Simulated assay, not measured.
Amino acid sequence: MKIDLRCIPCNLNSLLRILDQNHAGEEEKKQVVRTFMKEVAEMDWSDTPIDIGRKVGEVLEPLFGDSDAFRDIKKMSNDNLLEIYDDLKTELLKLDDPLIGALKLSVAGNIIDVAPGHKIDIHSTMKDALSRPFAIDDLQELADRIRKANSLLIVGDNCGEAVLDKLLLDIAKVPNSYFSVRTKPALNDITMKEALEIGMDEVAT
């Protein structure tokens, strides 16, 4: 996927939200935004949305140093999903194949809106995630392989969706389950700190 023009205001709004949440001064905000816009203007349009998202983290580094500027956003994302974790698990266990349901929710984790003030409706979320067809649907084969597996590794991505990865591991119950994290903060990606906070160690190494 290449950069879309809509990626620019989306990432800029994220940058401003992070600056506000970390109580940056007005002049600091202007300098960071100026640097971000300059960096974006010089980007190759064949780059990916991940590349423009990485710019957000890069322009924040001089201001926040080693501190985690995304800390509040990551915690909010995880907390919102943890609030409905037990309900989601209960709903999954009612399905004919809970594992396929858990796989669908894990995929849907990428698009679940965890913006400030947004309350996730468990029923609409479940209905949409479980009923939406995949363009290429190999879920049954994947589920069958997982059921036969002796080990399973999930490469962690963003906070929030990591809670749904935990749910998948909880449902799958593969004997040797592993979950990998970032070694240091990078945007809203999960690190060891957040993984332990959501209890990932209860279902995986």
Rank of each mutant, 00 (worst) to 15 (best):
F134R: 06
D86Q: 13
F70M: 15
P133N: 00
S180V: 01
D121R: 07
L168H: 04
D170P: 14
P116F: 04
K119P: 07
G109D: 06
V163I: 01
S131V: 02
K104N: 01
I112C: 00
K184G: 01
L168F: 08
I154K: 05
H118R: 13
K127C: 09
N110K: 05
D72Q: 15
E91T: 07
G160K: 01
R71Y: 15
I122A: 08
P133K: 01
I122P: 12
F134S: 01
A129E: 04
D72A: 14
D165I: 06
D144H: 12
L167N: 05
G101L: 02
V174G: 02
H118Y: 12
A135V: 14
Y85V: 02
T125V: 10
A172N: 07
L93I: 09
I171H: 08
L99E: 05
G117R: 06
K94Q: 13
L92H: 08
L105M: 10
K119H: 13
R147V: 09
L88Y: 04
F179N: 07
F70N: 11
K148H: 15
K148N: 15
V107K: 03
L130S: 06
D113K: 04
G156V: 04
S77I: 00
K89A: 11
N158H: 02
L81P: 06
I136H: 14
A115V: 07
M76W: 10
K104F: 02
T125K: 08
D96A: 11
E91D: 07
L88F: 06
S131A: 07
N158F: 03
L167P: 10
F179Y: 15
G101T: 01
V114N: 14
T125Y: 14
K89H: 12
D79T: 14
D138E: 13
S151L: 08
V114Y: 12
L168N: 03
K94Y: 10
E141P: 09
G101V: 00
T183W: 12
I171D: 10
L130H: 07
T183M: 08
D97I: 03
S77V: 01
D138S: 09
R182I: 03
L82D: 09
L93C: 10
K127Y: 13
M126D: 02
A172T: 05
V107Q: 10
V107A: 10
T90P: 04
E141G: 06
S131N: 10
I112V: 11
D137W: 00
Y178I: 07
L153A: 08
I146Y: 01
L168Y: 03
L164E: 04
Y178Q: 12
D165L: 07
V174T: 11
I84F: 08
L164I: 01
L82Y: 05
H118A: 05
H123Y: 11
R147N: 12
S77F: 00
K104L: 04
L169R: 11
I146N: 02
